[in-house]
Every structure is written in structure tokens, then in C-alpha cells.
Computed example of a mutant assay.
Amino acid sequence: MNSDQVLDVFRAAGALLEGHFILSSGRRSPVFLQKALVFSRPDLSEKLCKALATKLTATFGKIDVVAGPAVGGIIPGYELARHLGARAIFAERVDGHLEFRRGFSIADGERVLIAEDIVTTGLSFRETVEALAKLPGTVVGGACIIDRSGGRADVGCQLVSLAQVNFPDYAADDLPPELAAMPPVKPGSRGLA
């Protein structure tokens, strides 16, 4: 699949939104990818993750464990693991830091892939890299469905995306007039109590 085909999947699910959005990073954008609408559809999740799994196998070879941050990495992590013949685990936020709980473990020598849904700044990815550094195993790289940073995000490891886009985003105090004229909406989950 190419980037246009991936975005077509998001459009078909009603998940490519236009307006004034506050991203998880706090930055503002006229485009929001409501990935929950895509991942609520097993057929679409399978289509995207199967295509990404093919790219990942070609890039990294055998993967033993797919690890992602909750919430965004759970569904794509599970679906990627299914196509890669791997286990899927996820990290949860505990006292402001990501931790692998629930009996999840990684053995010495296991090859670990980090999975996320969308990458914008790479913060959740880097936090997952830090959480995995406390466990045995080797992080071989990372994966996401869409890299909306256009390849600029520092994720702390090699990143393979199914689609790479470069949607504009702005600091809250440096908005273009057309965006500043609209009330902002925060549809993401980071920072919810």
C-alpha cells in the first residue's frame, strides 16, 4: 500500500477530519486522523497491519515480540503480532511513566518491535523505548501506520511506516489566521483524567 491508499482507508472510515485540532503534543493542526474509527473496524485494521507486516519482515526479519504504548499501540500491535507470528504486549502509564505490567515479559535474545498507530512528535515511541530498556531483549526497530511528521520525528529507533505524510502543525501561539478563526477541538486521549 502507498500513502494515498492508506489515507483512502482513513477517508472511507470517516477518520480523516478537517478543522482546528489540538494534537496530543499540544500543537495545532487543520487535519486530525481519528484512528479509533479505523481500528474499530477489524477488516480495515487487518488490511493496514498485514501490509505493514510485509514491509517489517523485509526490513527487520523475524520479530518475537511486538510492544506498544497504551492506548495507541494496543490494536495495531496485536494485529501486527498476529501477522508476524509474534507475541503482543503493551506498556501502561504508571505515575507518569510507561511500564510493562500484567505479567508481560521479554526473554534474553528476543527481538522486539515497537508498534504505534500514528507518529507525530515521537514522544510515546521514545517513552516505550525507555520502558523497554529496563527489560532483556533487543529493540530492532519500530512501526506505525502513519508517520505524520514526514520522517522528522525522533522515535529513538529505526521507524518503518505504512504511510508518511506531512500535515501542517503549529504552535498554539503561532497559528495561521484561518486556523485561529476556528474554535479548537481536542479529540485525542493523552492527558485525559
Rank of each mutant, 00 (worst) to 15 (best):
D95Q: 14
P136D: 11
A133C: 02
Q5L: 11
T59N: 13
I146L: 05
V165E: 14
R27P: 00
F125W: 07
E130L: 11
R190M: 02
E130I: 05
A171C: 00
F39A: 02
V165G: 01
R28K: 05
T128Q: 05
L113V: 09
V31M: 04
A36N: 10
I114R: 00
A143S: 14
E79F: 13
S24E: 13
R102F: 12
E92Q: 13
R190F: 13
D95I: 00
A107C: 01
H20W: 05
R152W: 01
F21W: 09
D4P: 00
D117I: 02
V9C: 06
V66K: 03
T59I: 01
V71D: 05
A163E: 06
G142S: 13
G73E: 05
L56P: 00
L37H: 06
K134P: 02
M1I: 08
P176R: 09
Q164S: 15
I145Y: 01
F100Y: 14
G26T: 10
L162E: 07
A12E: 15
A91C: 12
D4V: 04
A58L: 14
P168M: 07
A171H: 13
K62I: 02
G137P: 07
A88S: 15
A143T: 04
S24Y: 03
G191P: 10
F100M: 13
D169Q: 12
L16Y: 03
Y170V: 10
P76D: 08
L33F: 10
G77Q: 10
A133R: 15
A131I: 09
L52M: 10
N2H: 10
P187R: 12
A13G: 00
A115H: 06
R28Q: 15
